[in-house]
C-alpha cells in the first residue's frame, strides 16, 4: 500500500487538490443560491414562492449524477463547451443549493412569525426585519445542518469521476486500474476523503452541542 502512495503521489495530490477546489467553489455558489431561493420562498410575492418551490423540488428529486451528465453532455451541443470539472462543479452547486434552501427556509420559519410582525410594527421594512432580526437568529439554528450539507457536498464531489473531472475519485480509479491493486488504492482514496470530512464532521458535532 505504501508503494502505491509513494509511486502515484502526484496523482493523488492532483486529485485531492481538485476535490478541495471543486468543493470550495460549489460550496460558495450553493450557499448563495440556497439562501437566495430560501428568501424567495418565505417572501410574500406568490410568484417568487412558486419559482423557488419548483426549483427546490426539481433539484431535490433528480439524482446528482443525472444533473451533472446533462451539463456535461447536453449543454455543449447547444451552447458552450463545458469541461468535466466545470460541469461537475455546476451540477454539485445546483444540487446542493436546493437542500441548502430547504434548510435555511426551515430555519427562518422556526424563528416564528411573531418576530417578523414585531419588527414590522416597530417601523422596520421587510428587508430590514429579515436582515437584522430574522436571519441572525435563523443562522444559529441552521449552522449544524448546513455543516452536514457541506460534508455531503464533499462526498458528492466524487461524481466528477464520471465526467473526467480529475478529482480524487477519478485519479483513484486510474491508479487502481494501472497498478491493479484495487482495494489498496481505494483505501488510500478513502483516507484522503476522511482527512477532509472527518474533522469537519467532529467539529460540527461539537458546534451542535455548544449551540444546543
Amino acid at each position: 500500500m505504501w508503494q502505491i502512495l509513494t509511486g502515484y503521489w502526484s496523482e493523488f495530490i492532483t486529485g485531492f487538490g481538485n476535490t478541495i477546489l471543486c468543493s470550495l467553489i460549489a460550496m460558495f455558489f450553493s450557499l448563495i443560491l440556497g439562501v437566495f431561493f430560501a428568501l424567495l420562498e418565505v417572501a410574500p410575492p406568490k410568484i417568487g414562492r412558486a419559482i423557488a418551490h419548483i426549483y427546490i423540488e426539481i433539484f431535490c428529486n433528480i439524482p446528482l449524477l443525472v444533473i451533472t451528465m446533462i451539463f456535461y453532455l447536453i449543454i455543449p451541443q447547444f451552447w458552450v463547451k463545458v469541461s468535466g470539472f466545470t460541469a461537475g462543479t455546476i451540477g454539485l452547486a445546483l444540487y446542493t443549493s436546493a437542500f441548502i434552501a430547504e434548510t435555511v427556509r426551515s430555519g427562518i420559519n422556526s424563528v416564528g412569525d411573531g418576530q417578523m410582525e414585531g419588527a414590522l410594527s416597530n417601523g422596520m421594512t421587510y428587508v430590514q426585519a429579515m436582515r437584522y432580526v430574522i436571519l441572525p437568529q435563523a443562522i444559529r439554528i441552521v449552522i449544524p445542518p448546513l455543516g452536514n450539507q457541506m460534508i455531503t457536498l464533499i462526498k458528492n464531489s466524487s461524481v466528477l469521476a464520471f465526467v473526467a473531472g480529475f478529482d480524487l475519485m477519478y485519479q483513484g480509479d486510474i491508479v487502481a486500474f494501472s497498478s491493479f491493486q484495487t482495494i489498496e488504492t481505494y483505501v488510500i482514496v478513502g483516507v484522503f476523503y476522511l482527512g477532509l470530512t472527518l474533522p469537519l464532521s467532529y467539529y460540527m458535532r461539537h458546534l451542535e452541542k455548544r449551540l444546543a
Partner: peptide, 13 residues
C-alpha cells in the same frame, strides 16, 4: 468512518 466516505467509494469496496 462510513458516514464520511463517498458512497461511490463504498460501492467499489
Amino acid at each position: 468512518i462510513i458516514r464520511n466516505l463517498p458512497l461511490l467509494l463504498i460501492i467499489f469496496f
